[in-house]
Design a protein around this nucleic acid. Structure first.
Lengths: 185, 185, 185, 185
DNA sequence: AATGAATGAGTCTTCATTCAT
DNA sequence: TATGAATGAAGACTCATTCAT
């Protein structure tokens, strides 16, 4: 009998550990050797689970997107009022900042590999999922999220999340009736 | 010595024409051959003006940053009132969207080549220059700019600029006194 | 110990099924995975019967040579007169064409793996066996056999066997006394 | 101005020097490094003139075929009578034996790379060219040539050319009127 | 000085072989 | 024992950089 493996779990574990090198170095600069090392496997095993480098990048992005949406859902699960949702959302962003920033980098690289506009559908789905969970039209909020993440990548030190969300407060809480209205600063 | 002028002009022309391939393909995926072709020169000439690929990327980003700030200055030059400045700023963003998006991609790649945090200083300088020109604290505005650019890269079709700037209206026009003149710095 | 019989039989069955992929792809291009699949076993089992790829190629050629000589012997068994021997030989060639062509390819590849001249002894033994069975000096006949096989490999469609053997009729039937009995050796 | 090169000549020189390693090792076993070394160039240069390994193999075969036919034409150029043609042909075979054997190996490998039957057209063209030059139907002669070459590969030492051609004398000189008739033996 | 052919280290990928199960 | 997942050395191919012309 062969070595028994849960292929899906293995694949998933590899992806989990691939995220960092792919995001940090970028698709064009990570070497499969780096990826394998980060994943704690041999390059051969990498190719046992993925046909090529490109596929890893694609699978990585897909997995991150699904994971992000799921995590957001979980974060907002218990929050019933607008204020609680807002707070939960901010906590989610804060906690998941690094991972989300990585996803952004992955998505931008994705364009290089799959061609311009390849991520458009994904981005819209993201926006709509966010909107649905927050109960708003997330058009502007998703942009601010992207902006915050881009800033975080470029300048990891100082991004004042609170201030940014206060600035788009009305987007987050457009017609809030179930709790006290909030005014910016 | 007219050579010097010509040399500078040629170097500059090369950088100008390098922007697109570097931004589109990304540092790790553009080949010097692509760059040379886009610039309309031989690879030999490329190496006459730049010691290596990395230097081109760095010079490219520096040039873009300077150019952007200068262009913004020019765009805002005649606008004396807050409303006019805001309008001029939006027009600037609209006109320069592609180029700014390219700069963002360049900056993100820069991190990969020069190491994390390498762009932080630059970004802050950018923010401060923008703030000075608009007469505001551009902390949130610069984030929104980054967000808009990231969205544009990921989904070139639909970004409703106007709506985004309306959302952060109070950041752009904190005093809300449309006709009070503003001075940079 | 019936195990030994089974083991030999299995080894033999593997070789039988290996012939085609080894001949078709060539030693350098067949992969052990292909071989295992064609043989209907796991690669693990392959390594149970053969220490490495090279050994399979060698064993394959040896087995084919033995099998060919045996088959020729069987084909000529009942043919007592020169004419009958000639007819039986032609039928043998016709029936076994594909297999013999495969053997030729195997032998040529053998040279690549074992070094030049490695097949010389084998070829001469072949020629002598053929000569003994046909009761002639098979020097020219063996060459024509090789030629026919090479042609068959290169152009599977049209090789007119009859015509070729007619051309070397005198080599096949030097005495021209159709009914004189011949004895091998 | 760039290094000035006659690309065709360069390509041709590489092919000339590639013949041996490709024929000796076989397509699947030669490494590009071997090929480059044999050609006296870097692997990079190899890829400057040929898109990939496969293309080298194909170009090699094409070049050899053309060269062989041309050489045969030259060898037979002055020979007017059947006897002289036969003699010139045998001398050609003798002189070119190694090279022709290499071509055969190339052609057999070609099947592995390009698929079965890929060499059929080429082989027929060869046969027809040979037939035209010798003024005969070369169907059997080409087979004997292949046989002789195959034997030469498998057993470089002893192939008695004269004896083989005597055996197919009537094929070479079917209805010879312009010189004395020849009988085998 | 300017060109692009040449170099060869380094990349992605394959595959003979091993070995945990 | 038999399996096929895992290994990693080695192969085809690329491309930043050099340099002959």
């Amino acid at each position: 009998m062969p070595r028994i493996v849960d292929a899906d779990a293995e694949r998933d574990a590899i992806l989990e550990r691939c995220l960092l090198p792919f995001a940090r170095e970028g698709y064009g600069l990570v070497r499969m050797r780096d990826v394998a090392q980060a994943a704690g496997v041999s390059t051969g095993k990498l190719y046992h689970y993925f046909p090529d480098k490109r596929s890893i990048a694609v699978a990585l992005l897909e997995r991150e997107l699904a994971s992000d949406v799921e995590a957001l859902g979980a974060a907002l699960a218990g929050a019933r009022t607008g204020a609680k949702r807002r707070a939960a959302f901010l906590r989610f962003l804060e906690d998941r900042q690094d991972r989300l920033a990585a996803t952004l980098l992955l998505a931008l690289d994705h364009q290089r590999v799959e061609g311009a506009g390849a991520a458009a559908t994904v981005l819209r789905a993201y926006r709509d999922a966010l909107g649905a969970l927050l109960g708003i039209d997330a058009e502007v909020v998703i942009t601010m999220v992207l902006g915050v993440l881009a800033r975080r990548v470029l300048d990891p030190a100082g991004v004042d999340l609170e201030r940014h969300w206060t600035a788009v407060e009305q987007e987050l809480n457009p017609v809030q009736v179930d709790d006290a209205p909030m005014t910016a600063g």
